[in-house]
Amino acid sequence: MWLPDRRTFLVSLAALAGCGFTPVYGPQGGGSKLLNAVALEAPDDRYDYDFNKRFEERLGRGSGPYALKVDFELGTTGLGSLADGQTTRYRLSGRASYALTPVGSEDVLIVGRTDSFTSYSATGSTAATQAAERDARRRLMVILADRVIDRLLIDADTLPE
């Protein structure tokens, strides 16, 4: 049975310190520059709202020095089918292209693109399939929000003071 000891912990900590690791929200990390500092566009639909909600849960509601522009591309593909050709499972893929700019400026500070996917079953009733699709779209927007935030936090130390 493996039991952790202090020596292993201290050696691991020393290795992280030696490689230049700094916590993103630590004193030298850039993540604190983004907390409550990123303004989002008003949502156009339910899924933009889900993205904004998740973004604000993690970084706070911002009216600060930065604005985030996000464009989404969503697509649906049938995955499984029965012998009669009826599709039983759908893959919902999404791509978020984002640009972080200073408020009131067109200068781009951080730009990027991320994508992900989720899926849902279409074997139930029509109402169940529609509910599954709505849930899959909500989950996809949460995943995309998390990925955009992670990418922003990685590059946050490049932002001006």
Score class of each variant (00 low, 15 high):
Met1Asn: 04
Met1Ile: 03
Met1Lys: 02
Trp2Ser: 01
Leu3Pro: 02
Pro4Leu: 10
Pro4His: 04
Arg6Ala: 11
Arg6Pro: 07
Arg7Cys: 00
Arg7Gln: 06
Thr8Ile: 12
Thr8Trp: 08
Leu10Pro: 00
Val11Arg: 10
Leu13Gln: 12
Ala17Glu: 14
Gly18Val: 11
Gly20Glu: 13
Phe21Tyr: 14
Pro23Cys: 07
Pro23Thr: 12
Tyr25Ser: 07
Gly26Glu: 06
Gly26Leu: 02
Pro27Ser: 15
Gln28Tyr: 03
Gly29Tyr: 05
Gly29Ala: 06
Gly29Asp: 00
Gly30Ser: 12
Gly31Asp: 09
Lys33Val: 08
Leu34Arg: 11
Leu35Asp: 09
Asn36Gln: 12
Asn36Ala: 04
Leu40Ala: 05
Pro43Ser: 11
Asp45Gly: 09
Tyr47His: 04
Asp48Lys: 08
Asp48Gly: 15
Asp48Glu: 09
Asp50His: 08
Arg54Asn: 09
Arg54Thr: 15
Phe55Tyr: 06
Glu56Ile: 12
Leu59Thr: 01
Ser63Asn: 13
Gly64His: 05
Pro65Asp: 06
Tyr66His: 02
Ala67Tyr: 04
Ala67His: 11
Ala67Arg: 13
Leu68His: 01
Leu68Lys: 09
Val70Tyr: 07
Val70Ala: 08
Asp71Thr: 14
Glu73Lys: 14
Glu73Tyr: 08
Leu74Gln: 11
Leu74Cys: 00
Leu74Ile: 12
Thr76Ala: 13
Thr76Tyr: 11
Thr76Val: 14
Gly78Met: 02
Gly80His: 02
Ser81Met: 08
Leu82Gln: 12
Asp84Arg: 05
Asp84Tyr: 01
Gln86His: 09
Arg89Val: 07
Tyr90Thr: 06
Arg91Tyr: 00
Gly94Leu: 03
Ala96Pro: 01
Ala96Cys: 00
Ala96Glu: 03
Ser97Gly: 05
Ser97Lys: 08
Tyr98Arg: 00
Thr101Phe: 10
Thr101Glu: 09
Val103Ile: 11
Gly104Thr: 05
Ser105Trp: 05
Glu106Arg: 10
Val111His: 09
Gly112Gln: 02
Arg113Asn: 15
Thr114Trp: 03
Thr114Pro: 03
Asp115Ser: 14
Phe117Trp: 07
Ser119Gln: 13
Ser121Gln: 08
Ser121Met: 09
Ser121Val: 09
Ser121Cys: 03
Gly124Arg: 05
Gly124Lys: 00
Ser125Val: 08
Ala127Leu: 11
Ala128Phe: 03
Ala128Tyr: 01
Thr129Asn: 12
Thr129Ser: 14
Gln130Met: 10
Gln130Glu: 14
Asp135Gln: 14
Asp135Ala: 14
Asp135Arg: 14
Ala136Glu: 12
Ala136Tyr: 09
Arg139Leu: 11
Leu140Ile: 08
Leu140Arg: 06
Met141Trp: 01
Val142Arg: 10
Val142Leu: 04
Val142Trp: 01
Ile143Pro: 00
Ile143Leu: 15
Ala145Glu: 00
Asp146Phe: 06
Arg147Thr: 11
Val148Met: 04
Ile149Ala: 05
Ile149Pro: 01
Asp150Asn: 13
Asp150His: 09
Asp150Cys: 05
Ile154Ser: 06
Ile154Gln: 13
Asp157Trp: 00
Asp157Met: 02
Thr158Gly: 01
Thr158Met: 07
Thr158Lys: 13
Pro160Ser: 01
Glu161Lys: 07
